[in-house]
Design a protein around this nucleic acid. Structure first.
Lengths: 182, 182
DNA sequence: GTCTATATAGGGATAGAC
DNA sequence: GTCTATCCCTATATAGAC
């Protein structure tokens, strides 16, 4: 099995149980590999498995969410494309955000710098699009940050209330909200 | 030491490390009691410690956040009082929300029903105030839910970015936002 | 009510055969 | 590259003295 194929199978385990709630037994079962086989792919053990999963997911996020913002379409179209990417990336809200899940406990000690960096890149990349339509940089940053707040909050609520329309409504309202009176 | 005094000392451990990231050794150290002494207070072990902590925090939330909404003041004053309570309860955003932290992994299996119930009570109690000023019940629920989304999202961002002004800004804007054009 | 000491299970991790 | 078998450690939990 390719390393990438293994990583893909580990993703849902870390996402559901968090770093410390995930055990090698779970990862073994999810991947179909014995524990020792996992150590062949990840000599540093659980920590490097989480590391690989985070890196893989970051690339997926870049592709699904950030790339659309860097295309040469109209700003409104870019934002709509981002929202489509968000809907896909978070499976309509059913997927918890890795950045939120991994910013707790020991995982936070291990990955904090990367998590913070990723979140800020997201905010800044979105802000660029707003600046493009003439919104003041400071205001653009605020709006962009606010959109991320809404998304993260919606993901928490969906996890608890189990109603994906909460997430879908937030996503649907995002583009207009971000550009309003611009 | 009284049971309540013990519970208070356990709170920050579960809040920072989550249910599965918290160990009895941590709880022992935080409380100043030996592991066996903790079992005197909580015969069911870690699960009942988390249970007691969740119940205690729920009472604090009720007092700080929900009670102000049930006073006989003007609606806008009630919302402002809630925001003051939120700021206190979440320590200006430095405290992660227990409902969010405990809705992950094994803890979610143990506590999901209570967590969902608590979140919905919060949303409904806030909605009552909006209905009081003539907002349609459906719209009141939406706005109320949206305010909780913003709070939860802000708590996630503060945890990662470590800037409490994010939370404070959200809180400051809440009352007006909830009542706008009502 | 708190302690020391201990039991038991499962966690992460490794050795070495195939 | 995957396995079986095993190691060591820590986690949860208990027994029983004080």
């Amino acid at each position: 099995m390719s390393k990438e194929a293994v990583i893909v199978k580990l993703i849902p385990v870390f996402r559901q149980y968090g770093y410390e709630g995930t055990t090698l037994s779970m990862l073994s079962q999810a991947s179909g590999l014995g524990k020792a086989s996992l150590y062949h792919h990840f000599p540093q053990g659980k920590e490097s498995m989480a590391d690989a999963v985070m890196a893989y997911v970051a690339v997926e996020f870049e592709r699904a969410v950030l790339q659309p913002l860097k295309s040469d379409r109209q700003p409104i179209e870019k934002l709509k494309a981002m929202c489509q990417g968000l809907n896909e990336f978070y499976a309509a809200g059913e997927n918890s955000c890795f950045l939120a899940i991994m910013s707790v406990g020991e995982a936070d000690n291990l990955f904090h710098a990367r998590i913070k960096q990723q979140l800020q890149t997201w905010i800044e990349t979105t802000a660029e699009v707003l600046i493009e339509v003439g919104i003041e940089p400071a205001e653009a940053k605020m709006r962009s940050q606010h959109s991320v707040i809404e998304i993260q909050g919606a993901l928490v609520l969906v996890r608890i209330i189990k109603d994906t329309t909460i997430f879908e409504n937030i996503i649907a309202s995002l583009p207009q909200k971000m550009l309003q009176q611009a």
